[in-house]
């Protein structure tokens, strides 16, 4: 009888312990403590869900007729490049978004394929690891724009 009571108390205690351990902000711990962020490397931010919310811009440059941004997903802690046609004369251009990082293959480069209209943009794959990062891109009439684009670029991040 004494042993049975002890067993009941022990089971109750373990249940509470396990419940408590799985309740404390588990997703945050798992996300930041593990290296799973690297699995985002090379994926596109829209397809991976990283571009859905809490996306900020770390860097912007304004080359001719364009805007080149280094975008940052706080959700996934990944970064990528977005190049937008902002031509004041409403012309369509070919575009390229290049994202550079510190290990081989050392860049992702995405040409737009066809011309993109004003207010349209092209974005690169994202990267979690291998800082420093740099965003490069441009719009022009050359097709295809040879990649990777080496200039103009943002300052390093």
């Amino acid at each position: 009888m004494k042993y049975k009571n002890y067993k009941v108390a022990l089971i109750l205690m373990l249940t509470i312990f396990l419940y408590a351990m799985t309740s404390f902000q588990a997703p945050k711990f798992v996300h930041w403590a593990s290296a799973s962020g690297s699995s985002w490397d090379g994926q596109f931010p829209d397809a991976s869900g990283c571009a859905v919310a809490s996306v900020t811009t770390e860097r912007i440059i304004y080359p001719a007729s364009s805007k080149v941004e280094m975008r940052h997903s706080i959700l996934c802690n990944t970064l990528w490049t977005r190049t937008t046609n902002t031509d004041s004369q409403n012309r369509s251009f070919y575009a390229n978004a290049t994202f550079k990082f510190n290990v081989s293959p050392s860049y992702y480069t995405i040409p737009s394929g066809g011309k993109i209209a004003k207010n349209q943009s092209v974005f690169s794959q994202q990267r979690y690891s291998s800082q420093p990062f740099k965003s490069c891109g441009l719009v022009n009439l050359i097709n295809p724009i040879p990649g990777p684009v080496n200039s103009p670029c943002t300052t390093n991040y």
Binding site: F44, T84, I110, K118, Q120
Partner: peptide, 30 residues
Amino acid sequence: CSDGSDHIGGFQIIEKPKEMDDITADAIAA
């Protein structure tokens, strides 16, 4: 709007008042 295929985003204006210039229409739409 672009749907993200070919990694293209953003929008295009497909209709605006004749008297409105492109720059004004772009700014309002953006």
